[in-house]
Nucleic acid binder design. Structure first.
Lengths: 328, 328
DNA sequence: TTGAAAGCGCTAACAA
DNA sequence: TTGTTAGCGCTTTCAA
């Protein structure tokens, strides 16, 4: 292993100087800097992270806790975040909670003990607040929590967009299948839906179904909606899994989408765009979310405070794929 | 911050003893152990990872490099692996290459420099061999590479299973859409298909299409197959994305699945099982893969050599969802 | 602008 | 079985 000492010797300087060069200190003469750089290159030197951490008590490591990495939305988020942090020389440690609050607590604790510099959290739907207010920066992603700093999409705008879109196609009985409203995103999506349908005069409580962000619930809720005396001509789901469940419930009843009924998902995962030409979905700006999240985190780590405690992303779009007016 | 020293003082022992307790050394009296344990608990002490790393030159950190974390198969693999390593007190750093060989090389390099103890790699389809034979343990997952230690499913068996299954339902014109055969899994899946169809006397070159593991290619290939003079009555894809592409190509031609044509995927992602009752898929034993991978890695890290250089998982199953005999 | 040196918290070798 | 001590490789203060 090549150490700072070796570089110093090779370049005819001292460890202090080498360290200064490494850390971009301005108090190094140009000659020294060049000689050191040359030596580093020549010896193929890489600073020892453990030693740096021990001295500076910073690990250049962040943790990411997601409820379901299997969900392509969170997969895409993890990818974008990893890439972003990467660019700042930070590694990202992954933890998946499978929507279990207990596992989330464990993960929070273990990552804290590991000594990560910061923690990104997409809280479980059943999270009320974080049990152990760790002393390291915590940034929520997608789903917000109390007054923790975080980045989230303008979910109200998202469903509002969807309602307007469907209304524009002539739909009047627009239902919604919403996630657990203990979760900020679900609550906000419901709010956007309610506000907009009310404004259009087409709101009805009987068109709302609340439950887990799952395929199974999407299917079940859709079946209930189809059993209503006058069934909806369009449905807005809170995520793509629910939307696909709804899709299959319709298929099971011999209804064609979108000819007989329109379905709109949320997240805009590739899944949705591929699933069928007929599943429209509200797209979240995933990489923007990652960029802002990383910025927020680095700010928090560097300065201890975040300029903007929370970031709201407003560039949601609706992935129009194939739509038709209601058939009745 | 509480240090070893504090614990020693509090428990009336010395740092040596505390360290021994921490590392499970047998040379500690029961009294001393108890007093130390009590102090650790009392002071809420957590050993400093950086200091440990510096001394032992081990980070208890592993890297995972996947081509596409957005794909739920790799998502599930990452989750299982993280959980498994976790149980052994190892953290998992995630890197996604988006099937880019260049990004893979970068990731390999960067993670190596970070000082992870081992690297899990699902090589890009275009990987021929690893450019920089790092001096840290490398274990391939799913896709194998040269003679690197790794864990893979018995892919031949998988497609063989699928062919037999479809043949059992009466299918005779069984096509396949296969991934890039530079990739071990694709090559093996093709091999299993070819061997089995030959044995049954139903092999035909014109029923084979090779290309990327993507939705787009699956769709394109299916369209080509449907243009054949006598079209296949069943198709086996190399992964679920391709299968879904194929599904949509059929839908686009007004063909119903499985009534008019049967489609079988590979990976058994939730996606497939949810996608529609009509997409059958060969399920890989993902968590077994993770368990074996972790075992292999820990062995490699601990002893420097792996008992079994490569592990072949044979418990693939076919997720029968809804099948019918060919309509012609 | 530089070099020398202290020490971050831990493990392991040595002595007792 | 135990305590003492020498570093692991680095950053950073202090003098020069």
């Amino acid at each position: 292993m090549v150490t700072l000492h070796d570089v110093a010797k090779f370049s005819g300087t001292s460890v202090g100087t080498v360290s200064r060069v490494l850390n971009g200190s301005p108090h190094v003469s140009e000659v020294a800097r060049l000689r050191v750089l040359r030596a580093i290159d020549e010896l193929n030197f890489t600073p020892n992270r453990a030693a740096q951490s021990l001295r500076t008590s910073r690990t250049t490591l962040a943790g990411l806790i997601v409820p379901d990495i299997t969900n392509s939305f969170f997969g895409a988020l993890a990818r974008a975040l990893a890439r972003e942090l990467w660019a700042h020389d930070y590694g990202l440690i992954l933890a998946d909670t499978a929507e279990s609050l207990e596992k989330q607590t464990e993960a929070l604790d273990a990552l804290g003990k590991r000594g990560v510099d910061g923690l990104f959290l997409v809280p479980t739907t059943s999270t009320r607040d974080i049990a152990n207010p760790l002393n390291i920066p915590l940034v929520t992603l997608d789903r917000t929590l109390a007054d923790l700093p975080g980045v989230t999409s303008d979910n109200r705008q998202g469903t509002s967009l969807a309602v307007s879109y469907l209304h524009g196609w002539g739909h009047r009985r627009i239902a919604t299948i919403v996630g657990p409203t203990t979760c900020s995103t679900a609550a906000e999506r419901l709010e956007g839906y309610a506000t907009t349908t009310r404004a259009l005069g087409i709101y009805s409580r009987s068109l709302i179904r609340e439950g887990p962000f799952s395929y199974a619930f999407g299917k079940q809720a859709m079946e209930e909606l189809l059993d209503e005396p006058t069934r909806p001509t369009a449905v807005i789901a809170s995520n793509d899994s629910q939307a696909i469940g709804a899709l299959h419930a319709c298929a099971g009843r011999g209804l064609r989408v979108p000819q007989d009924i329109s379905i709109c998902g949320f997240d805009g995962s590739e899944l949705a765009s591929h699933l069928s030409p007929s599943l429209t979905s509200v797209k979240q700006p995933i990489s923007t979310m990652a960029t802002h999240g990383a910025r927020l985190m680095l700010e928090l780590i560097e300065t201890g405070t975040a300029g903007s405690g929370a970031v709201l992303l407003t560039d949601l779009t609706i992935g129009e794929s194939c739509s038709v007016p209601p058939s009745h």
